[in-house]
Design a protein around this nucleic acid. Structure first.
Lengths: 201, 201
DNA sequence: TGACAAACCACACAAATGTGTGGTAATATG
DNA sequence: CATATTACCACACATTTGTGTGGTTTGTCA
């Protein structure tokens, strides 16, 4: 299923343009898409839209102008909640999506949403940093981070954990924000950096 | 300035319909507005749009279908941040708006946004509840609340504070989530209930 | 080689949509 | 009373936008 890419490069460009326009508030017309992508015929654009519809990424209403909708799967303004942190290795694919956080603006500013995702926090290891069990942690994917950043890190046992990154004499380790949890000195890989926490009562 | 209402009832209906449609993802066409409101002429709708534009609530692009935008002031998906909690009495009018939180979906579900607002948290009195200085507290207006709810309350000295509501032997008082702050037994009025916390790093 | 799909284009046409002019009626304002 | 203002309607018309048919080219697969 993944031997042939799900979307051709051009299809992805079309989809991204639609995402961008919807993000900017107005879905594009067929001709606007064509103009942007350099297609000289509206028929071409319709072929692309047909393909995107068949792949379940886009919905349309007949004969209505700009009536292009993204399905939840394709939406740009939804950050997928891809797993529960501490509960194992979250799969960064779409299989394990538990829901979506709307990120339209939300004080994230305009991010490249390609590299943002969210995890539900499990446990109390970051409680002293004001991050509680059940909170949504919005993470920006980055392989690096700075001292004192709170990061999502992949441990050797394939667990993902949210901890504070510390630099002690040039060597990085992870620290909980809870005296009951010891620091982690084992091998780990930084997945991304915490940028937002959302808690719902 | 407030003797004559800012919007006539019909103008408000038009605006609300536009809000609704934008919330549902596609701004309406002129004819769709007319249909909804029972206007038989497109000219009528244009008169209303002109009025809304003059009042600074709506922006349009000429000759483009559905190209109706709400200005930030009129937007439904933005929860106004109306003040800093603990820093005095927030004015529930539009004068003191510091910014907006996008609430489109954001796990708030679909609320009646009329009665939701946000405050920026100042101080550490709720730190043990995981609410830190600088967090955005999203509040749903309600005159009542239950025991143990975290509420925004108006104190006698006209300060607004975020505290946990406690019921001791039938009498309500307010409690900080920080041992350094004593409980508050003086008179207060519950403004609303905390429903969401957002923190940006 | 033949069949097929992906990736385009040209156009004609119909439907949707925005623009503009010119009204009427009721009510308020000075 | 004259003049705005609000609140509409009727149409004609210009644009924008979506639909549909019929191509060409390129590459893949059998």
């Amino acid at each position: 299923m993944k031997d042939k890419p799900f979307l051709t490069p051009k299809q992805e460009k079309v989809l991204n343009f639609i995402r961008k326009r919807i993000g900017e508030r107005l879905p594009p017309t067929i001709r606007e898409i064509g103009e942007e992508l350099g297609f000289k015929s509206t028929g071409t654009v319709r072929d692309y839209l047909k393909a995107l519809m068949q792949k379940g990424l886009v919905r349309r209403m007949n004969s209505k102008s700009r009536a292009i909708e993204l399905t939840e799967r394709a939406s740009f303004n939804k950050i997928p909640i891809i797993g529960t942190i501490m509960a194992g290795k979250p799969n960064l694919a779409y299989e394990e999506i538990q829901g979506y956080v709307d990120a339209d603006d939300l004080f994230l500013g305009r991010l490249g949403f390609d590299d943002v995702f969210a995890l539900r926090v499990k446990g109390d290891s970051m409680i002293d940093a004001g991050i509680l069990d059940g909170d949504i942690a919005v993470i920006k994917k980055r392989p690096d981070a700075n001292n004192n950043d709170i990061v999502a890190a992949l441990l050797d046992n394939n667990e993902v954990t949210l901890k504070r990154l510390r630099n002690k004499a040039g060597k990085f380790h992870l620290e909980a924000a809870n005296a009951n949890y010891p620091p982690i000195f084992e091998e780990f890989k930084v997945i991304g950096k915490l940028i937002t926490v959302i808690r719902k009562y």
